[in-house]
Simulated assay, not measured.
Amino acid sequence: MQALLKFSRGIDWLNSLVGKYVIWLILASTVISGVNAIVRKAFNYSSNGFLEVQWYLFAAAFLLAAGYTLLQGEHVRVDVVASRLSKRAQIWIDVFGFVFFLTPVCLVILWYGIPFFIQGYTSNEMSSNAGGLIRWPVYLMMPLGFGLLLLQSLSELIKRLAFLQGLIDDPTAKKAEKSAEEELAESIRRLAEAAKGHDTSAAKAD
Rank of each mutant, 00 (worst) to 15 (best):
V22W: 01
I23R: 09
W24G: 14
L25T: 11
I26A: 15
A28Y: 06
S29N: 12
T30D: 13
I32W: 08
I32T: 10
G34E: 09
A37P: 07
A37F: 12
A37H: 06
I38R: 10
R40C: 10
K41A: 15
A42H: 11
N44T: 06
N44C: 04
Y45D: 08
S46N: 10
S47L: 03
N48A: 05
G49H: 01
F50Q: 09
W55N: 05
Y56E: 05
F58T: 10
A61K: 01
F62S: 02
F62M: 08
L63A: 02
L63E: 00
L63N: 00
L63T: 01
A65Q: 10
A66S: 11
A66G: 09
A66H: 04
Y68P: 01
T69I: 07
T69H: 07
L70R: 09
L70S: 05
L70W: 02
L70K: 07
L71A: 05
G73R: 05
E74L: 14
E74R: 15
E74G: 12
V76M: 08
V76E: 06
V78D: 13
V78I: 15
V78R: 09
V78G: 07
V81C: 04
V81S: 03
A82I: 11
R84C: 03
R84V: 03
R84Y: 08
L85V: 06
L85D: 07
S86T: 14
Q90M: 06
Q90K: 10
Q90I: 08
I91P: 06
I91G: 07
I93P: 06
D94I: 02
G97N: 05
F100V: 08
F101K: 04
L102R: 00
L102H: 02
T103H: 05
P104K: 01
C106P: 00
C106K: 00
L107A: 07
V108P: 01
V108D: 00
V108C: 06
L110V: 02
G113T: 05
I118W: 12
G120A: 13
